[in-house]
Every structure is written in structure tokens, then in C-alpha cells.
């Protein structure tokens, strides 16, 4: 009965109130204001008029430019997420099998970039991709993998690769965490029953780390779909995604209501996707992995 919570402490509201007030004042109210803003009217000469209209939403709904842009945003996000899963999950597994000093060193090398400025990392890709004679193309051609340079800069391919690099640590971390819960003896058990290495990975390891891959995938997807700096630098001015478009509307065109509508739509889409896939994963894996 030692788990019985001591009751003689001050009420938690006293501890919670400062943070709660802060969040109501500086998160909930601004978000509500942004939603309101998306219904306001904007004119080239009149600026923002505080009226309630559906014009911005109708424009996004009917203009194929916005359809294409949102489609591109999610296409890039899905591709980058798949790339991180395909590379990050095996790497986490390999990492987990390494011996003591190397394990820590490589974990640091792979996870460390997470904390390095996105601008600096994306700049690195811009240098690697840079034009027809970028370092990446030179290297790929010299090992005979390709004959002609691939255009990376200002293309979706380039944005996807750079985004996958930026988000990779999240995937490795998520799968790594799942691997820590796997009984280290389980592979030996499978081996003793006659399973080969590939069978062990496919039948024993993969099912156990699947929740990690999926939850890592959700994180990576939501970050990719709302990414700003990487698509802006690698994609350039023409390859617009939701975040860069909203930025343009706000700071170049100055059509705040339209920008707010794009942002609110992006937020709603991401929240919807994240919440529903979380729920799906939890339902699917709730019993097996408590």
C-alpha cells in the first residue's frame, strides 16, 4: 500500500495555474485569432477587414494551384518518411547489435545532427547538390552509379533527400527505443528453433519494432509536411509547399487571411493524420505491446 498517494500536499492547481494561464493567453488565444483571421477579407489597398467571409477557403478549395501545392507537400512528406523508414530502421537494428564503445559513438554521430541547425544542415545539401557539377553528382558518377548528372537542386528529389536526412534521427531514435524493449535472448531462441537470419528479422524482429517504425513515421511525416527551411532552400522559389506558401502570403504578398487559411488547413490535416494514425497503431498493438 506504499503506492497510496500522500494527500497532504497543496492542491495541484496552485502548481499548474501559471503554466495554464500562459498557455491560454499565448497559445490558445493566438490560435483562435488565426482561425478568425482566415475568415477575414483582404484587399490590395484596403488591407485586412475584420468581416466573416468564406472567400479564402473557397479560393483554396477551387484553385488548382493550391490543390497541386498541398498534393506536392504530402507527396514529399510521404516519400521522405518512407526513405527514413527504409534506411533508419535497419540502421537502428545494426546499431543495436554493435559492441559497447562503437554503439555509443555511432549513436551520437547519427542522433547528434538532430540538434544542429536545420539551416546549416540544409546548406550542406545545397553545397552537395549545387548545380550540374555538384559534389553528390560527381561522386555518384565516379563510382559509375549514374552516367548523367541528376538534377537535385530545385527538384522534389532533392527536397526529399534533404528532408529525409534532417528527419532521420527521429526515425532511428524511435526504432532504437522499440529495440530496447526486445528481449536480447529472443534471437537466440529463434535460432535454436532453426530460424535463419533473414527469417529472424522478418518474423521475430520486424513485428516487434513495427510500432517503433510507425510512431517514428508519424513524427517524421508531420515534421516533413510542415517543413519550411529545407524546401525553401533546396526547392527554391518555384517549388512551393504549404509552409513556404504561407510564408509568402504573410511576408511578401501580405495577404494574411489567405496565408492563415493555408496554415490552419495544414494544421488540421496534420492533427487529423497524426491523431487517427496514433489511434490506429494503439488499437493494433495495444494488446501485444503493453
Amino acid at each position: 500500500m506504499s503506492a497510496a498517494a500522500p494527500a497532504r500536499y497543496p492542491v495541484p492547481w496552485k502548481l499548474l495555474l501559471p503554466a495554464l494561464m500562459l498557455f491560454i493567453a499565448v497559445v490558445l488565444i493566438p490560435l483562435a485569432m488565426t482561425i478568425m483571421l482566415s475568415f477575414h477579407k483582404w484587399g490590395q489597398y484596403t488591407g485586412i477587414e475584420p468581416v466573416f467571409i468564406l472567400e479564402n477557403w473557397r479560393e483554396i478549395w477551387s484553385d488548382s494551384y493550391f490543390h497541386e501545392m498541398f498534393l506536392r507537400t504530402f507527396r514529399i512528406a510521404v516519400a521522405a518518411t518512407l526513405l527514413t523508414a527504409i534506411c533508419g530502421a535497419p540502421e537502428a537494428y545494426i546499431l543495436n547489435r554493435m559492441r559497447a564503445p562503437w554503439k555509443g559513438i555511432f549513436l551520437l554521430i547519427i542522433l547528434g545532427p538532430l540538434l544542429i541547425s536545420v539551416v546549416a544542415r540544409t546548406l550542406g545539401w545545397a553545397l552537395l547538390f549545387g548545380g550540374q557539377n555538384g559534389i553528390a553528382n560527381k561522386a555518384l558518377m565516379s563510382i559509375g552509379l549514374i552516367d548523367t548528372p541528376i538534377p537535385f537542386m530545385f527538384t522534389e528529389t532533392g527536397v526529399i533527400i534533404a528532408l529525409a536526412h534532417v528527419m532521420m534521427p527521429f526515425m532511428v531514435l524511435s526504432v532504437w527505443a522499440a529495440l530496447q524493449r526486445v528481449d536480447p535472448q529472443i534471437e537466440n531462441a529463434a535460432m535454436s528453433l532453426g530460424a535463419g537470419p533473414l527469417t529472424i528479422i522478418r518474423r521475430i524482429i520486424l513485428p516487434q519494432i513495427m510500432p517503433g517504425i510507425l510512431s517514428g513515421g508519424i513524427i517524421v511525416f508531420s515534421l516533413c509536411a510542415s517543413a519550411f527551411a529545407t524546401p525553401a532552400i533546396i526547392g527554391g522559389r518555384r517549388l512551393k509547399v504549404a509552409a513556404t506558401l504561407a510564408y509568402d502570403e504573410f511576408l511578401n504578398t501580405l495577404n494574411w487571411p489567405l496565408g492563415a487559411a493555408v496554415a490552419v488547413l495544414l494544421l488540421m490535416a496534420i492533427v487529423l493524420i497524426v491523431v487517427s494514425s496514433n489511434a490506429l497503431i494503439e488499437r493494433r498493438y495495444a494488446e501485444a505491446f503493453r
Binding site: 498517494a5 495541484p12 493566438p30 490560435l31 485569432m33 488565426t34 509552409a243 496565408g259 492533427v271
Partner: peptide, 30 residues
């Protein structure tokens, strides 16, 4: 353990889930 504890932690962690571009816009307006 108090009612609304989970909702409250979700609120406090929400800046992780809200895209930064949305936060930027909301704060700019605010």
C-alpha cells in the same frame, strides 16, 4: 492523479505537434 491531467499534459506538449509555421503565424497575428 486529477481529472483533466492527460488533457493538460497534451496542451503543454502541444507546441511540439503544432507546425512551427502555424505557431509563427499565430504569434505574428497575436
Amino acid at each position: 492523479q486529477f481529472p483533466g491531467r492527460d488533457a493538460l499534459s497534451a496542451l503543454f506538449l502541444s507546441p511540439l505537434m503544432i507546425p512551427h509555421v502555424v505557431l509563427g503565424i499565430a504569434f505574428l497575428r497575436f
